[in-house]
Amino acid sequence: MADLNIYELFRKMEEDDIILSFKGDITQDLLASVYQIMEARLESEKEEPKRKKKFYHILVECLQNVYHHMVDLKEEHGPDAMESTAIFMIGYGPENSYRIVTGNFISVEYVDGLKTKLERINKLSPEELREEYLQQLSTTELSEKGGAGLGLIDMARKSGQKLEYSFYPVSASHSFFSLGVTVH
């Protein structure tokens, strides 16, 4: 850690309205803590129950989406590799919204498939998203680690917003994938 100005970082996070941010290994225990912290936070802000539930639901899907990818990357690269860590930020967005942004590494071979899937999801109407969700729910099996392959569809469906995403090429073998969801 070279000459890090922690106050600069603090101010940046303050300006960007970030409530909680984490970079590192995403574990089940960490996620349990994050859920508890965010629940307490929403409780203290007197957020209306309906919105609180929606936010919480989407938060769980976003973070577990990263978690499931990290399990794969840890198997592939070992627990100490940079690729085995991820980042997420939870904050406020425009018009009193919440924002959840996650970032993790992804093998380049999966980039095109994921891009196509995201483009497709973003084109679906609410009714089509429901059909897609039901179709997937009734036909696919859970992966060994419990992934249902429904996370992205569910985020789009529950948030009622387009999923924001980008891919940054970082090496010959990996891209950095970021996913942002806004909860109104």
Partner: peptide
């Protein structure tokens, strides 16, 4: 609430 893993 329940997550998509539980929905299955």
């Amino acid at each position: 609430y329940f997550n998509t893993s539980s929905s299955k």
